[in-house]
Amino acid sequence: MKAGLILESWPLFAEGVWITVQLTVLALALGLCLAVPVAFVRLRRVRGLSALADGYVALFRGTPLLVQLYMVYFGLSQFEWLRDSWAWALLREAWWCALITFALNSGAYASEILRGALAATPAGELEAARALGLRPRQVDRLVLLPAALRRSLPQLGNEVVFMLHGSAVASVITLQDILGAGRALNARYYLAYEGLLTAAALYMLVTLVVVGVFRALERRYLRHLALAPVRVRSRLPAMR
Protein backbone atom coordinates (compact mmCIF):
# COMPACT_ATOMS: atom_id res chain seq x y z
CA MET A 1 0.00 0.00 0.00
CA LYS A 2 1.54 3.27 -1.12
CA ALA A 3 -0.17 5.80 1.14
CA GLY A 4 2.39 8.48 0.26
CA LEU A 5 1.37 8.47 -3.40
CA ILE A 6 -2.30 8.78 -2.46
CA LEU A 7 -1.66 11.75 -0.18
CA GLU A 8 0.54 13.40 -2.80
CA SER A 9 -2.30 13.15 -5.32
CA TRP A 10 -4.88 14.89 -3.16
CA PRO A 11 -5.47 17.75 -5.64
CA LEU A 12 -6.39 15.14 -8.24
CA PHE A 13 -8.92 13.56 -5.90
CA ALA A 14 -10.27 16.92 -4.68
CA GLU A 15 -10.95 17.86 -8.29
CA GLY A 16 -12.53 14.42 -8.76
CA VAL A 17 -14.90 14.85 -5.83
CA TRP A 18 -15.90 18.27 -7.15
CA ILE A 19 -16.73 16.92 -10.60
CA THR A 20 -18.65 13.95 -9.21
CA VAL A 21 -20.67 16.07 -6.78
CA GLN A 22 -21.33 18.73 -9.41
CA LEU A 23 -22.58 16.20 -11.99
CA THR A 24 -24.66 14.28 -9.47
CA VAL A 25 -26.36 17.29 -7.91
CA LEU A 26 -27.15 18.99 -11.22
CA ALA A 27 -28.33 15.75 -12.83
CA LEU A 28 -30.63 15.02 -9.90
CA ALA A 29 -32.07 18.54 -9.89
CA LEU A 30 -32.72 18.47 -13.65
CA GLY A 31 -33.99 14.91 -13.36
CA LEU A 32 -36.51 15.87 -10.70
CA CYS A 33 -37.75 18.81 -12.77
CA LEU A 34 -38.33 16.34 -15.60
CA ALA A 35 -39.82 13.69 -13.32
CA VAL A 36 -42.73 15.83 -12.04
CA PRO A 37 -44.44 16.44 -15.40
CA VAL A 38 -43.62 12.91 -16.61
CA ALA A 39 -45.16 11.39 -13.48
CA PHE A 40 -48.34 13.49 -13.86
CA VAL A 41 -48.64 12.62 -17.54
CA ARG A 42 -48.27 8.94 -16.76
CA LEU A 43 -50.73 9.15 -13.87
CA ARG A 44 -53.44 11.05 -15.75
CA ARG A 45 -52.97 9.34 -19.13
CA VAL A 46 -52.79 12.57 -21.15
CA ARG A 47 -53.56 11.75 -24.78
CA GLY A 48 -50.51 11.90 -27.04
CA LEU A 49 -48.10 12.74 -24.26
CA SER A 50 -48.61 9.49 -22.38
CA ALA A 51 -47.08 7.30 -25.07
CA LEU A 52 -44.09 9.62 -25.22
CA ALA A 53 -43.61 9.57 -21.45
CA ASP A 54 -44.03 5.78 -21.32
CA GLY A 55 -41.44 5.36 -24.07
CA TYR A 56 -38.98 7.65 -22.34
CA VAL A 57 -39.23 5.85 -19.01
CA ALA A 58 -39.06 2.42 -20.64
CA LEU A 59 -35.96 3.42 -22.65
CA PHE A 60 -34.00 4.91 -19.78
CA ARG A 61 -34.96 2.31 -17.19
CA GLY A 62 -34.55 -0.49 -19.66
CA THR A 63 -30.92 0.12 -20.63
CA PRO A 64 -27.72 0.41 -18.59
CA LEU A 65 -26.42 3.88 -17.80
CA LEU A 66 -23.04 3.03 -19.31
CA VAL A 67 -24.63 2.14 -22.65
CA GLN A 68 -26.66 5.38 -22.58
CA LEU A 69 -23.51 7.40 -21.94
CA TYR A 70 -21.60 5.69 -24.76
CA MET A 71 -24.52 6.31 -27.13
CA VAL A 72 -24.69 9.99 -26.27
CA TYR A 73 -20.92 10.57 -26.28
CA PHE A 74 -19.53 8.34 -29.02
CA GLY A 75 -22.79 7.53 -30.81
CA LEU A 76 -24.22 10.99 -31.47
CA SER A 77 -20.83 12.35 -32.55
CA GLN A 78 -20.93 10.04 -35.58
CA PHE A 79 -23.65 12.15 -37.24
CA GLU A 80 -22.23 14.99 -39.26
CA TRP A 81 -25.48 16.99 -39.34
CA LEU A 82 -25.48 16.92 -35.57
CA ARG A 83 -21.89 18.07 -35.42
CA ASP A 84 -22.85 21.00 -37.66
CA SER A 85 -25.86 21.96 -35.54
CA TRP A 86 -26.05 24.26 -32.52
CA ALA A 87 -26.37 21.23 -30.23
CA TRP A 88 -22.73 20.35 -30.88
CA ALA A 89 -21.63 23.27 -28.71
CA LEU A 90 -22.92 21.23 -25.77
CA LEU A 91 -22.47 17.70 -27.04
CA ARG A 92 -18.81 18.15 -27.93
CA GLU A 93 -18.08 18.55 -24.23
CA ALA A 94 -17.82 15.33 -22.25
CA TRP A 95 -19.18 17.15 -19.20
CA TRP A 96 -22.44 18.11 -20.91
CA CYS A 97 -22.86 14.65 -22.40
CA ALA A 98 -22.56 13.18 -18.93
CA LEU A 99 -24.95 15.72 -17.39
CA ILE A 100 -27.59 15.23 -20.10
CA THR A 101 -27.40 11.44 -19.88
CA PHE A 102 -27.46 11.38 -16.08
CA ALA A 103 -30.37 13.85 -15.90
CA LEU A 104 -32.44 11.84 -18.39
CA ASN A 105 -31.63 8.61 -16.58
CA SER A 106 -32.35 9.98 -13.13
CA GLY A 107 -35.55 11.66 -14.40
CA ALA A 108 -36.89 8.30 -15.58
CA TYR A 109 -36.29 6.63 -12.21
CA ALA A 110 -37.54 9.59 -10.17
CA SER A 111 -40.72 9.81 -12.25
CA GLU A 112 -41.52 6.20 -11.38
CA ILE A 113 -40.96 6.87 -7.69
CA LEU A 114 -43.15 9.94 -7.89
CA ARG A 115 -45.88 8.27 -9.93
CA GLY A 116 -46.16 5.59 -7.28
CA ALA A 117 -46.38 8.17 -4.51
CA LEU A 118 -48.97 10.23 -6.42
CA ALA A 119 -51.11 7.18 -7.05
CA ALA A 120 -50.90 6.15 -3.40
CA THR A 121 -52.22 9.46 -2.06
CA PRO A 122 -55.18 8.66 0.24
CA ALA A 123 -58.48 9.65 -1.36
CA GLY A 124 -59.48 11.35 1.88
CA GLU A 125 -56.68 13.88 1.60
CA LEU A 126 -57.83 14.95 -1.85
CA GLU A 127 -61.46 14.96 -0.79
CA ALA A 128 -60.60 17.23 2.12
CA ALA A 129 -58.75 19.58 -0.23
CA ARG A 130 -61.74 19.75 -2.55
CA ALA A 131 -64.06 20.30 0.39
CA LEU A 132 -61.99 23.36 1.25
CA GLY A 133 -62.97 24.73 -2.13
CA LEU A 134 -59.64 24.26 -3.92
CA ARG A 135 -59.79 24.01 -7.68
CA PRO A 136 -58.30 20.85 -9.31
CA ARG A 137 -55.08 22.70 -10.26
CA GLN A 138 -54.75 23.95 -6.70
CA VAL A 139 -55.34 20.48 -5.30
CA ASP A 140 -52.47 19.17 -7.47
CA ARG A 141 -50.11 21.99 -6.61
CA LEU A 142 -50.89 22.55 -2.94
CA VAL A 143 -51.84 19.08 -1.72
CA LEU A 144 -51.12 16.21 -4.09
CA LEU A 145 -47.58 17.06 -5.21
CA PRO A 146 -46.17 18.16 -1.84
CA ALA A 147 -47.65 15.12 -0.13
CA ALA A 148 -46.28 12.79 -2.79
CA LEU A 149 -42.83 14.40 -2.63
CA ARG A 150 -42.80 13.95 1.11
CA ARG A 151 -43.78 10.32 0.90
CA SER A 152 -41.15 9.61 -1.75
CA LEU A 153 -38.33 11.09 0.30
CA PRO A 154 -36.79 7.78 1.41
CA GLN A 155 -36.90 6.39 -2.13
CA LEU A 156 -35.58 9.62 -3.60
CA GLY A 157 -32.71 9.36 -1.12
CA ASN A 158 -31.99 5.97 -2.57
CA GLU A 159 -32.07 7.40 -6.08
CA VAL A 160 -29.55 10.06 -5.05
CA VAL A 161 -27.16 7.38 -3.83
CA PHE A 162 -27.68 5.34 -7.01
CA MET A 163 -26.99 8.38 -9.17
CA LEU A 164 -23.89 9.23 -7.18
CA HIS A 165 -22.50 5.75 -7.70
CA GLY A 166 -23.76 5.55 -11.27
CA SER A 167 -21.90 8.75 -12.10
CA ALA A 168 -18.67 6.73 -11.87
CA VAL A 169 -19.19 5.80 -15.52
CA ALA A 170 -18.27 9.41 -16.40
CA SER A 171 -14.63 8.36 -16.23
CA VAL A 172 -14.95 6.39 -19.48
CA ILE A 173 -15.59 9.59 -21.43
CA THR A 174 -12.42 11.39 -20.29
CA LEU A 175 -13.93 13.09 -17.23
CA GLN A 176 -11.66 13.09 -14.21
CA ASP A 177 -14.31 12.35 -11.60
CA ILE A 178 -13.56 10.40 -8.41
CA LEU A 179 -13.05 7.13 -10.27
CA GLY A 180 -11.18 8.93 -13.05
CA ALA A 181 -8.77 10.32 -10.48
CA GLY A 182 -8.27 6.84 -9.02
CA ARG A 183 -7.59 5.41 -12.45
CA ALA A 184 -5.17 8.21 -13.29
CA LEU A 185 -3.25 7.51 -10.08
CA ASN A 186 -3.15 3.78 -10.85
CA ALA A 187 -2.03 4.39 -14.42
CA ARG A 188 0.65 6.85 -13.45
CA TYR A 189 2.39 4.62 -10.93
CA TYR A 190 1.28 1.23 -12.28
CA LEU A 191 -0.63 0.46 -9.11
CA ALA A 192 -3.26 -2.25 -8.83
CA TYR A 193 -5.66 -1.03 -6.19
CA GLU A 194 -4.50 2.12 -4.36
CA GLY A 195 -6.36 4.46 -6.70
CA LEU A 196 -9.52 2.36 -6.62
CA LEU A 197 -9.42 2.03 -2.85
CA THR A 198 -9.11 5.80 -2.44
CA ALA A 199 -11.97 6.30 -4.89
CA ALA A 200 -14.11 3.79 -2.98
CA ALA A 201 -13.41 5.57 0.32
CA LEU A 202 -14.34 8.95 -1.20
CA TYR A 203 -17.58 7.61 -2.71
CA MET A 204 -18.44 6.18 0.68
CA LEU A 205 -17.74 9.49 2.39
CA VAL A 206 -19.98 11.40 -0.01
CA THR A 207 -22.65 8.71 0.40
CA LEU A 208 -22.58 9.13 4.17
CA VAL A 209 -23.13 12.85 3.74
CA VAL A 210 -26.07 12.22 1.38
CA VAL A 211 -27.60 9.71 3.81
CA GLY A 212 -27.21 12.23 6.64
CA VAL A 213 -28.90 14.97 4.64
CA PHE A 214 -31.84 12.73 3.80
CA ARG A 215 -32.18 11.60 7.42
CA ALA A 216 -32.49 15.25 8.39
CA LEU A 217 -35.01 15.92 5.61
CA GLU A 218 -37.07 12.90 6.67
CA ARG A 219 -37.01 14.03 10.29
CA ARG A 220 -38.38 17.36 9.19
CA TYR A 221 -40.90 16.43 6.50
CA LEU A 222 -42.01 13.00 7.68
CA ARG A 223 -42.32 13.94 11.34
CA HIS A 224 -45.97 12.90 11.34
CA LEU A 225 -44.88 9.35 10.52
CA ALA A 226 -42.30 9.09 13.29
CA LEU A 227 -42.95 6.25 15.73
CA ALA A 228 -41.33 7.74 18.81
CA PRO A 229 -43.32 10.42 20.65
CA VAL A 230 -41.90 13.92 20.56
CA ARG A 231 -39.55 14.32 23.50
CA VAL A 232 -40.66 16.89 26.04
CA ARG A 233 -37.97 18.94 27.65
CA SER A 234 -37.64 18.09 31.32
CA ARG A 235 -38.66 20.76 33.80
CA LEU A 236 -36.28 19.41 36.40
CA PRO A 237 -33.02 21.24 36.79
CA ALA A 238 -30.19 19.46 35.05
CA MET A 239 -27.94 17.35 37.19
CA ARG A 240 -24.53 18.67 37.81
Binding site: F74, S77, Q78, R92, E93, T174
Partner: peptide, 11 residues
Protein backbone atom coordinates in the same frame (compact mmCIF):
# COMPACT_ATOMS: atom_id res chain seq x y z
CA UNK B 1 -9.24 3.95 -30.56
CA UNK B 2 -11.42 6.19 -28.39
CA UNK B 3 -8.96 9.07 -28.74
CA UNK B 4 -9.19 8.81 -32.54
CA UNK B 5 -13.01 8.67 -32.39
CA UNK B 6 -12.98 12.00 -30.57
CA UNK B 7 -10.40 13.46 -32.95
CA UNK B 8 -12.63 12.58 -35.91
CA UNK B 9 -15.65 13.99 -34.10
CA UNK B 10 -13.78 17.25 -33.52
CA UNK B 11 -13.82 17.10 -29.72
Amino acid sequence: DEAFLDLAAGR
